[in-house]
Design a binder for these strands. Structure first.
Lengths: 237, 237
DNA sequence: CGAGGCGTTTGACGCCGGTCAAGCTGGAAT
DNA sequence: ATTCCAGCTTGACCGGCGTCAAACGCCTCG
């Protein structure tokens, strides 16, 4: 009989052990999170938390992606955030959860009940610090999206989006992939970029006809043929 | 000869002692901040920090207001945030300062050099916690603006803005004032709402003609005649 | 194989808001 | 007073993007 390793077994082969909030924890500290965590797989399109639900959940994204959506009372919808593996989901210390969280593609989450998660933050300074830094990064992302929505036209928004996804999807080795597996549908791209499906489709074919990207049809993949030209479109001079 | 009071004298009559980050500090702890702080008054329009400057400053807003702006390389400008008395300005732990901070109207700031400020965060848990909560609130604000910019038309954005200012400007006693002293010019409203000056002006006169608001001309004040109707315009059903 | 449904593409048209331009107002300088 | 100037308002026009509609490709299910 051998001793338990200090790293919780369920965390041992976690894909985001070193990229999520957990990267702020030593192996032996991770039990604090592991003990309150529940792993769950959400099929594509399943809602994790509805707007208006009591704010009871926080989570790490292990694989897949989630969209954070807000909507006007009359039903117009806007994706206010897209989160990827390693990202943190939730609002510790907040009362309400005004936003809807939905899985985009099959998604694995590592769920924490909010109360115990907050207590873990209390006890693990480094994790709270990391959460603060992550939250500030999210704010910066949001500010970039505000610039895009307020001042960029359709092509520019789409070009920016493709570059953004390319960077986030780039595997750890090569930083930015040229062939992107778009995580979301045309309709979701529209909801993310403040456009309509038709405009997204038209501008994508425009980029294709101009030889900037290639689209394999029926598939959601997109290849960047000239990153340089795409960047020039995203941030014109 | 009497003992020094535990509250630093310069903080004794500070207008935001109990609303800024400082509200997380006991009187006797405030010396840690007071010792590194420098009060400075910025005239209207003066830039506090340029985009691209080294990220060396954090601050509390004591009076006035600041705008946080981003811009595209070709010069289109967007206000990504408006901050009021009691709000915190800056990005501790971040490398660069990609945004420009500008005083809007005469503004008093309580400035902290970033390094020492970060050390103060290290030593004062409660303040770091408060900063985390504030940052999450800012993120929520930003998400609301993303919804507005992505999915609302001109009148709706302006109505939302007026209500927003009315709530933030409402003195402590009555929560939301009906007569608003608009903190910014038409041009800045345009930059904030992703519109042009002309559109802002037209939609404001439209609201005036419809009897929803009154505008005293020459002055930057605006009176909400029917908060109910304004709210119905901001979030149509 | 064919039927049906979903996501996407493409087209025709109209409107909201941007652009350009002119006039208006009030305050500061002279 | 007169001039000047910055900020605001108003008007005429136009183009980008939304709206409505139809067709296409791909998948699943009968």
């Amino acid at each position: 009989m051998r001793l338990m390793p200090s790293l919780p077994s369920r965390c041992a082969e976690c894909l985001v052990r070193d990229t999520s909030l957990c990267s702020a924890m030593r192996d032996d500290e991770l039990h604090a999170l592991s003990d309150i965590a529940r792993r769950k797989t959400f099929p594509a399109g399943q809602v994790v938390t509805w707007s208006g639900d009591p704010n009871s959940l926080c989570a790490n994204i292990v694989s897949g992606a989630v969209k954070v959506t807000a909507s006007t009372p009359d039903g117009r919808e806007q994706i206010v955030g897209l989160l990827y593996p390693g990202d943190f989901v939730g609002q510790p210390f907040a009362q309400d959860a005004p936003l809807t969280i939905t899985a985009v593609g099959e998604t694995d989450l590592c769920l924490f009940p909010r109360g115990p998660f907050e207590r873990t933050l209390d006890e693990h300074r480094a994790m709270e610090r990391k959460l603060l830094e992550r939250t500030m990064e999210s704010l910066t992302d949001a500010q970039n999206r505000i610039l895009a929505l307020g001042r960029k036209n359709a092509v520019e928004r789409i070009a920016s989006f493709l570059l953004e996804v390319s960077e986030r999807m780039g595997s750890d080795e090569d930083d930015s992939a040229s062939e992107i597996a778009l995580p979301i549908s045309r309709g979701e791209m529209a909801d993310y970029l403040g456009l309509t499906i038709e405009t997204v489709s038209r501008q994508l074919t425009r980029l294709r006809k101009d030889g900037v990207i290639a689209l394999e049809k029926g598939d959601r993949s997109c290849t960047i043929l000239s990153r340089e030209r795409l960047a020039a479109i995203a941030d014109p001079d």
